[in-house]
Amino acid sequence: MRITMKTLYASPERSIAAGATADVPDDEAQDLIDRGFAVPAGADEADGQAPRPGAARKSPPAPPDGDEVPDGSIAVVLAWVGEDRDRAAKALDVERATKGDRARVKLVEDLTKLLESEQPE
């Protein structure tokens, strides 16, 4: 079976770099797919799977419109916040209220850093 590795894989028989595509025995391939280390060759990056070699990268998300904190990735939330302290405070409150102790650490750090930075005069 032809697979694309999501991580580095090494065994006594072979080693395959992350992002590389290789033919491996069906049972080994299925085990790697089931454990989340590989995807079937040709799987699309948009599905959260390994990119195909030479696949174009996605552009960053456009900032969402509206006054409500978007429910999306860290990049989407930070794009919505921009440099707006009021939005940063609102996004931080929403993240902590909805996620509790599972709040996204990087998002909380970035929002806190913005809120604690000196305001331009």
Rank of each mutant, 00 (worst) to 15 (best):
24 V>P: 06
40 P>T: 05
23 D>Q: 11
39 V>M: 04
52 R>L: 10
109 E>F: 01
33 I>P: 10
88 A>Y: 02
46 A>K: 11
30 Q>S: 09
114 L>H: 07
49 Q>F: 10
99 K>P: 00
2 R>K: 13
5 M>C: 14
68 E>Y: 00
98 T>G: 04
45 E>G: 00
23 D>E: 14
18 A>I: 00
43 A>P: 01
20 A>M: 13
95 E>D: 08
97 A>H: 08
15 S>K: 04
85 R>P: 12
41 A>K: 11
56 A>R: 14
13 E>T: 12
83 E>A: 14
94 V>C: 01
30 Q>D: 08
45 E>M: 04
43 A>D: 04
13 E>C: 03
102 R>E: 12
21 T>K: 08
5 M>D: 01
118 E>Y: 01
101 D>G: 00
54 G>H: 10
15 S>Y: 06
53 P>V: 08
52 R>M: 03
73 S>H: 06
121 E>G: 10
17 A>Q: 15
67 D>R: 14
93 D>W: 07
18 A>R: 15
121 E>N: 08
19 G>H: 02
102 R>W: 03
35 R>G: 05
29 A>E: 03
1 M>C: 09
9 Y>M: 08
62 A>H: 05
39 V>W: 02
114 L>C: 11
88 A>P: 09
115 L>M: 10
27 D>M: 07
64 P>Y: 07
15 S>Q: 09
76 V>M: 03
112 T>C: 07
4 T>I: 14
23 D>F: 02
47 D>M: 09
37 F>W: 14
11 S>D: 13
74 I>P: 06
121 E>V: 09
89 A>L: 13
6 K>A: 15
50 A>M: 12
117 S>E: 13
24 V>N: 07
51 P>H: 13
119 Q>N: 11
106 K>M: 13
22 A>Y: 09
6 K>T: 07
60 P>A: 02
114 L>S: 09
40 P>M: 03
48 G>A: 05
1 M>V: 12
66 G>R: 06
25 P>Y: 00
57 R>Y: 03
23 D>N: 13
11 S>I: 02
46 A>M: 10
59 S>I: 09
